[in-house]
Write a protein that binds this DNA or RNA. Structure first.
Length: 172
DNA sequence: CCCTGATTCGC
DNA sequence: GCGAATCAGG
């Protein structure tokens, strides 16, 4: 894959919107997370919102380490974190979300486990993808508890999601 | 272990 | 210029 103008433009857009490098890579397709990061640096549009304050790294010194005390202090940029997680970013991920719809019915006599209340973008392949709340609401989140490899949900939510047909019919 | 971005360096 | 490898941190 080569960096066409359009791809670079999209990269810029997504990066400025706060998406992580891996997410941008996934959306662009054909490139790795590292490729995205590398490109971002080359475009000189590194810092954004806040992710990992550049701690001025220094290892892998191949060339003679001429004790150059390059105490290059990166200006202490006083930046107010723009904590607004773009709605665009959210939409971008929806087409990847496997769990589309649930016919959630009230399940009584059960204690709902403490959810980790993860954001959509924080889900892994092994985090419970049970949605909590209204997808259009600000506090929409996912259970996020350990789901293992047996399914998309944690033990508790699996029971709700995969209710026997007989029981389900009753509540319907 | 999962993830994040940052940097280096061979290509 | 590109991006895998590697590093540092959460």
């Amino acid at each position: 894959m080569n960096w066409t103008d359009e791809r670079v433009e999209l990269l810029r857009k997504l990066w400025s919107e706060g998406l992580s490098a891996s997410q941008i890579a996934a959306q662009l397709g054909g490139v790795s997370r590292n490729a995205v990061i590398g490109k971002v640096h080359r475009l000189k549009l590194s810092s954004r919102g806040r992710a990992t304050a550049a701690p001025a790294r220094q290892k892998k010194t191949t060339t003679a380490s001429t004790a150059t005390k390059t105490v290059q202090r990166t200006a202490t940029v006083t930046r107010t974190v723009t904590a607004s997680i773009g709605a665009t970013a959210l939409q971008a991920q929806f087409d990847v979300e496997p769990v589309a719809r649930h016919y959630i019915r009230p399940v009584e006599n059960v204690v709902v486990p403490i959810s980790r209340r993860l954001q959509l973008v924080q889900l892994n392949e092994r985090t419970c993808k049970w949605p909590n709340g209204d997808p259009l609401s600000e506090d929409f989140n996912f259970c996020g508890n350990e789901a293992g490899e047996s399914g998309p949900y944690c033990g508790y939510h699996s029971k709700i999601a995969f209710q026997p047909a007989s029981e389900r019919r009753r509540s319907r």
